[in-house]
Design a binder for these strands. Structure first.
Lengths: 345, 345
DNA sequence: CTGAAAGCGCTTACAG
DNA sequence: CTGAAAGCGCTTACAG
């Protein structure tokens, strides 16, 4: 298979290279007749533009980059896929970059900016801290997806997210309504103003409203993978048999916890209730199915892409909140009463 | 944050641009003294090479592309991640491109070649048919990962895979050893010489050796997602209550099937045994854990990357077979005896 | 060991 | 509406 350049096409079509370029970029200032002739040659040769050259030359926004933090995170990768899908409606191409849960998304952003001149960024599953400020200094517009940037004050940062605090509050209300008063929370390592903090606060809002106290030891920091949460749960429940419910900050974590409990002889939901977060496919098909907070994948994807494209055209930053919903599951039941620590003795 | 070019660096360091380029590319023909001076400036400016320009100019192999067929396939995405990891040991950068299960990986390959001049390809979860021949005409070396290209005769195609036929045969032997004679197989739509055919043949090898017949109606074509396999299973078991075991061609499919059975009141493994394929994390943590054929992720990744890099340097094509292993799981049990079709009546 | 120059394939003012 | 020319940031022979 031969590789053609725009110059080859120009020659074959008997026009100048600039004309071919115009046709390819769907500019209006080409006669219909010429356009057809050029397109015929393009089709016939199976010509594909060289993006390296295209991106090298262009000064205008050429493409956006989606940075996903967490490789094993099915929810985030679903959202990323959906973003790619939505992006097709815009002229701006998008690329996706996956980085490790523990990696620095702002470093990745900087690199993408330097290496390939990405014009704008969507940060999926990011945090919001000093480094985001530094990254903002690049001047490229960014959209935080699933994280609220409203308080950040960063000039070129928009965000799309659900009200995490309200969602966890509502979820905790459900657990309390089922009689659970001794709950453990499995979440991430809070580094200030991130999604984990919001969710934690929401849970506290609920407990406080119900006059229930929370032992800080019952906040378990875990990796967001099956293996990670499984290990965390094994360790935690070896010492905390009195807990009757777990609120996990992702469905994957919930699944790992359920498996660990199961192996320890604790049934879900009969002995322990477990809730998830995200509303993934897996939550629906796991046994038991996992009660969870559904973040609307499509809506988040669509709004994020739209926002970034707006900003690339000079639009203002905006903070969008989308609606979550509580998805019932088989993983929650009425509290059977205090189990106490008797088992461990 | 300002963006510097190689020319800025050259000026600041008081050298020519070619010298900076040499330092950046770790060429030997630069004096230690000059190298240090240049690197200092590079560090100080936080300079990053523009890959668009780099890839545009270069004629030598610059980067490889990994094309993953199937977005929801956790096994394949794990392998892809591992490949990226292995690739760090080579000078050749790699990029990953995910395409839909139903999409044309060879079209994607062609585009990547035209648009970005990828020098070589790793095809993850691909098939092998007429289109692969056409793609081969591009001349770029390719490595089929998890598919055997040995019989294809394509000049520039290597492959890395397990012996799929032997693996499914061994797995079916286990089911038969547990007394199962009426087995359904959940797999993909065979389009000739692909992995589904191999696995099917392996299963037949076993059944034939045991003098057990197989009703073609018991081969169920399904999408490789939880939802897809769940739906397929619901439909299938509504009419085929006599089946006592399911051999699924992926862990995800196995999970979907288990969930469907569970909802229909059929327990796994008490009523129906189910086996998976791939050896994913999920198989280990699902309830029940899923007995599966483990494909060695790391080995496949490492060998594929190595092979492609070899070929990019002019090496010969090779066909590598790596070892699979059978992972026991809670999803298989002794056949309780024929259930017959009584339930349906 | 080092630098000036050409060129990778495209886009975009600039003149017609 | 169309084409010749300059230039995006880099690499790579080519001369020193």
């Amino acid at each position: 298979m031969e590789i053609y350049t725009i110059r080859d096409i120009a020659k074959k079509a008997g026009v100048g290279v600039s004309t071919v370029s115009r046709v390819l970029n769907e500019r209006p200032d080409v006669s219909e007749e010429t356009r057809r002739r050029v397109m015929e040659v393009v089709e016939a040769c199976g010509f594909v533009q060289n993006r390296n050259a295209r991106n090298l030359k262009n000064t205008k926004p050429v493409f956006g980059a989606i940075i996903v933090r967490g490789r094993r995170n099915m929810f985030l990768s679903d959202v990323a896929e959906e973003m790619l899908h939505c992006a097709q409606a815009y002229k701006t191409p998008f690329i996706v970059k996956y980085i490790d849960e523990e990696d620095d998304e702002f470093g990745a952003m900087r690199r993408l900016y330097g290496e390939r001149r990405a014009a704008g960024f969507i940060l999926l599953g990011s945090r919001l801290d000093e480094r985001s400020e530094a990254a903002a200094a690049m001047g490229a517009p960014m959209v935080f997806a699933t994280v609220d940037a409203a308080g950040s004050g960063i000039a070129n940062a928009s965000s799309v997210c659900i009200d995490d605090r309200a969602a966890t509050r509502a979820m905790m209300d459900r657990l309390v309504a089922h009689g659970h008063t001794c709950v453990a929370i499995f979440g991430g390592n809070s580094e200030g103003n991130d999604v984990f903090t919001r969710r934690y606060q929401g849970a506290m809002d609920s407990l406080k409203a119900h006059g229930i106290s929370f032992d800080p030891e019952n906040y378990v920091v875990t990796r967001f993978s099956l293996e990670g949460s499984y290990e965390s749960a094994k360790r935690f429940f070896a010492a905390h048999r009195d807990v009757t419910a777990v609120m996990a900050m992702s469905d994957t974590v919930a699944a790992g916890v359920i498996r660990a409990l199961w192996e320890m002889g604790l049934r879900v939901p009969q002995d322990v209730s477990v809730t998830g977060y995200d509303g993934t496919e897996m939550a629906r098909y796991f046994i038991p199915s996992i009660e969870t907070v559904c973040q609307p994948t499509q809506m988040i994807a669509r709004e994020s892409v739209k926002l970034l494209c707006e900003m690339l055209e000079g639009g203002e930053r905006r903070y969008v909140t989308v609606n979550y919903s509580l998805v019932p599951g088989e993983s929650v039941a009425q509290c059977a009463g205090e189990r106490g620590t008797g088992d461990a003795e």
